[in-house]
Amino acid sequence: MTLGFSLQVRGLDHAYGPTAVLQGIDLDLPAGRIAALVGPSGCGKTTLLHLCAGLLEPQQGRIDRPQGASAVMFQQPRLLPWMVTRDNIALGLKARGMARAQRHQLAREMALALGLPEASLAQYPAELSGGMQSRAALARALVLAPALLLMDEPFSALDVGLRGQLHQLLLARQVQSAMAVLLITHDLMEAVRLADEVLVLAAAPGRIVARYRPPGEPQRRGDALVHRCAAELLQHPEVRAAFDLPAQAAADAGMGEPSPEGGGKWLPAAQCRAEHAGHGC
């Protein structure tokens, strides 16, 4: 890999009081790549993202963030209700001390590129629909041209069509810049569609139990491939255990025969204990 690491996590442990939330997390995210972190609710995904964003101090282990800016897109849009959309999008630029005219110009360009209508720029968040609010939140993150974008289930409240649109917008932006993206989601399809690498987190304590690399480049993955890869991901015994799904019968699994179109690739995961020939760890 010639590209430098954008985000590097080594031996990260975290506990809230006596409860261990994260254990032995290792993560390498090169610049220009998208990693998706999937796992059941309450497995420590959001804690890990907060640690990566610097909102929490690591108790043990090390997190190296890139020199450049990082931006966060949260589960809810979290726009300031008393600011019009334009000012909300320009918030991070204002924090950097950019002059008003310049930051408004950049905010406007980003908003239009993400499909926000011109009129919405002067409206308050309460006047926007949920999809518009998500676009504004994405614009607020992207306008900073971050080296690292952290996303916490950003599209989970949107319908399929809107989510697809925002996926395309995000991928298009990500290809243009060398931005690294860490995406947290509980939607396997979303993970497989967007990511260069899918990391599966199991709960109590949160640890990475499987790493999966879907084939091809994210922009070129069709629906059929995404469905097949999501199904493949779901057949992994550790993944099934992580999501509390019942174990599969061997005949049902069909792991032995690789799909003719070529599926994804399993990578070694430190905490994987499954003994299964098919998944390679």
Binding site: H50, A53, G54, L55, A71, V72, F74, Q76, R78, L80, M83, L91, G92, K94, A95, R96, R140
Partner: peptide, 21 residues
């Protein structure tokens, strides 16, 4: 609390936190 976290993530300086948040 969510807005406070957002303000920290976007590194708002104290003046902006006071006046805008």
């Amino acid at each position: 609390l969510h807005l406070k976290d957002m303000a920290r993530a976007y590194r708002l300086p104290w003046r902006m936190r006071l006046l805008d948040l």
